[in-house]
Simulated assay, not measured.
Amino acid sequence: MRDWTDRGHVAWDIETTGFGWRGEITVCGFWYRGGHATLLVNAGPHSVDERLLTDGLDDASGADVRVRVCDDETELLRAMGEELFERFERDYDRLVAYNADSWKGGFDLPFVRTRCFRRGVDWVLDGVMSSDLYDPVKKRLNTTHTAYGASADANTLTGAHELLFEDAPDPAGLLDVEGHPWYASRAYDPFESSGSAAHHYRTGDLLQVCLHNLADVHRTWELGELVRVFVPAKDITEKRL
């Protein structure tokens, strides 16, 4: 993964109404190299102005964001497949996520599989090359922090990213060979956890939910590039979904 002639990264993450099998996907985000992102939004019972949502995301994050509003979860799942068909280069790209498919089982991939089955939608990630960042970040980068004589591991995406990137030099020159700027993903995340995103979705505050998802896919992409540079390829597992 450290070779720039190797596959490029496309980071992804989902927001949901809950963690149980009855939960639905509310937002699915993709972050591409160069600061380009796509968010697929399940409008559900809400009325959503796609243009206003896009402008709000652009203003808050500084990223180049494309928003597609879907009427329901079924349309969102199909839009995932269309997004990957249109923009994901299967011979050259790799989908990266954090704890989507880890040794503990992960969250995102099992959740999406269940939702595809429940909605009668064909497997939208079929044939996509994927790699999960949870194990290489936890095991090959030191994310142990100490406080008052005790130590703990940062097992979350937000926790790991904050520990590794806080006060670090600007990595743009080191990690982005195309010279694109790295935006401060933690600066525009309105929430500390995805639980808050689920609550705000129920109240119809979709801009805040989308900002949280955008920040998470941004963090995921940055961690993926960090792993590419500093972790040996043999310690990174990838597979075709």
Rank of each mutant, 00 (worst) to 15 (best):
Tyr92Thr: 13
Tyr92Met: 05
Asp93Lys: 03
Arg94Ile: 15
Leu95Val: 05
Val96Asp: 03
Tyr98Phe: 14
Tyr98Thr: 04
Asp101His: 13
Asp101Pro: 00
Asp101Ile: 12
Ser102Leu: 03
Ser102Met: 02
Gly106Ile: 09
Phe107Asp: 03
Phe107Val: 01
Asp108Arg: 04
Arg113Ser: 05
Arg115Met: 07
Phe117Arg: 14
Arg119Gly: 00
Asp122Ala: 15
Asp126Gly: 05
Asp126Arg: 15
Gly127Thr: 03
Met129Ile: 08
Met129Leu: 15
Ser130Pro: 04
Ser130Asp: 05
Ser130Gln: 13
Ser131Gly: 13
Leu133Gln: 00
Asp135Lys: 12
Val137Met: 07
Lys139Asn: 09
Arg140Ala: 12
Thr143Asp: 03
Thr144Gln: 14
Thr144Arg: 15
His145Gln: 10
Thr146Asn: 14
Thr146Gln: 15
Gly149Ala: 07
Ser151Gln: 14
Ala154Gln: 10
Asn155Thr: 12
Thr156Gln: 07
Leu157Ser: 09
Leu157Gln: 11
Leu164Gln: 06
Phe165Glu: 08
Phe165Ala: 11
Ala172Thr: 14
Ala172Asn: 09
Gly173Tyr: 05
Asp176Val: 09
Asp176Arg: 14
Val177Ala: 13
Tyr183Phe: 11
Tyr183Cys: 05
Tyr183Asn: 11
Ala184Gly: 09
Ser185Gln: 15
Asp189His: 08
Asp189Gln: 09
Glu192Asn: 12
Ser193Ile: 04
Ala198Val: 05
Thr203Glu: 01
Gly204Thr: 01
Asp205Tyr: 02
Leu214Trp: 08
Leu214Ile: 12
Ala215Leu: 07
Ala215Glu: 04
Asp216His: 03
Thr220Val: 10
Thr220Arg: 02
Trp221Val: 09
Glu222Asp: 11
Leu223Ile: 04
Leu223Lys: 02
Leu226Lys: 13
Arg228Gln: 10
Phe230Thr: 12
Val231Arg: 05
Lys234Asn: 07
